[in-house]
Deep mutational scan, measured.
Amino acid sequence: EPSQADLDALLSAVRDNRLSIEQAVTLLTPSSGGGSGGGSMDAKEILTRFKDGGLDRAAAQALLAGRTPA
């Protein structure tokens, strides 16, 4: 399960175009075949909204942490 520091680094990389959204989703869902963790939004949607400015960093982190299976 990614830590808050991992999520923060991942969000920074996506925002700075050092990591594509697809690459980030793969890192967030290493063994689930890329499927959502059952959250209301999947990781790709969360990351896309964050990059487009629709979500701030704290909200994106909380959503990603919340949808990651324990």
Rank of each mutant, 00 (worst) to 15 (best):
G37R: 03
S36E: 14
D42M: 08
L55T: 02
K44A: 07
R57P: 05
M41L: 08
A9T: 09
G39L: 12
G54N: 12
Q61R: 11
V14Y: 02
D42S: 07
A5W: 15
E45F: 04
P30S: 14
D8K: 06
F50Q: 00
P69T: 09
L10S: 00
E1H: 11
D42L: 10
A5G: 10
T48D: 06
R57S: 10
L10M: 08
R57N: 06
I46F: 02
A70E: 11
Q61Y: 11
S31E: 15
L63D: 02
V25M: 11
G53R: 03
T26E: 14
D42A: 08
S12D: 15
G35Y: 07
F50Y: 14
G34P: 14
D42T: 14
R49D: 04
G54D: 14
D6L: 15
R49Q: 15
A24K: 00
V14H: 01
V14D: 00
L11M: 04
R57H: 09
E1S: 13
G37D: 13
S32H: 10
T29N: 11
L7A: 02
L55Q: 01
S40G: 14
F50P: 00
Q23P: 01
G53M: 03
A65F: 08
T48H: 05
L7R: 03
R49C: 11
Q61M: 15
G35I: 12
R57F: 15
D6P: 06
V14P: 00
L19F: 03
L11R: 00
S12T: 11
R49P: 01
G38Q: 10
D16K: 03
P30W: 10
G34T: 12
D16W: 04
L7K: 02
A58C: 08
G66P: 06
V14L: 07
R15S: 11
R67S: 06
S40F: 11
T26F: 10
S36D: 13
A13C: 06
A65T: 12
L27R: 06
I21E: 01
M41D: 05
D52M: 09
T29E: 13
I46Y: 02
Q4S: 11
E45Y: 05
A43R: 06
V25K: 02
S36P: 11
Q61P: 00
V14N: 00
